[in-house]
């Protein structure tokens, strides 16, 4: 009983001391909070270091998405590589879980620390490929999918195309 009373008084005193501590929160629109690069916000599609789009339209992100907000259509380029004909994310359904980023084999789809995505019209929350695509590499600057793993295209085998290296032979022990 007395112990309980003492504990309550101690709580009061601790809270009273907080009169003199700084606020942990920030004045948001004027003062932006720090968001880590790994923050899960607006989704973007990135390019590889050579300026080609990374997305290979494998549909893994659409499969991984728990709310089914990603829709894309695979297209085939003249050289046989795949690309998304359209790529659509419905941000009014998106829960920013980051599963698509985890699923992506080419690091094409990435989440950014931007969360200010308000619209007056719900239809404006549907982002098309031109809204999603950025002219940069995002979080992974040197990664190029075709350098580590490749796809044979018309006339050239794996690793023989421009700026490409031989794919790593996973069955060999040699360095």
């Amino acid at each position: 009983m007395l112990n309980g009373l003492r504990s309550q008084l101690q709580t009061l005193w601790t809270i009273l001391q907080h009169s003199f501590t700084r606020a942990e929160t920030v004045q948001y629109p004027e003062q932006m909070p720090y968001l880590a690069p790994r923050y899960r916000g607006r989704i973007v599609l990135t390019n590889d270091p050579d300026g080609e789009e990374r997305c290979v339209a494998c549909n893994l992100c659409a499969v991984a998405c728990p709310v089914d907000c990603i829709a894309l259509q695979q297209g085939v380029k003249e050289d046989g590589r795949w690309y998304p004909e359209f790529f659509r994310i419905n941000f009014s359904r998106c829960i920013m879980c980051g599963m698509c980023e985890e699923a992506c084999p080419t690091n094409a789809i990435q989440l950014t620390p931007d969360f200010e995505m308000c619209e007056y019209d719900r239809n404006n929350m549907i982002y098309e490929k031109e809204h999603l695509q950025i002219q940069g590499t995002g979080k992974y600057h040197d990664y190029n999918f075709y350098r580590v793993s490749g796809l044979a295209i018309t006339g050239k085998d794996k690793g023989e195309a421009q700026h490409e290296a031989q794919p790593i032979d996973v069955k060999s022990l040699l360095p």
Partner: peptide
């Protein structure tokens, strides 16, 4: 309450 809970 804000001041005591480290808010504004």
């Amino acid at each position: 309450l804000g001041i005591w809970q480290d808010r504004y």
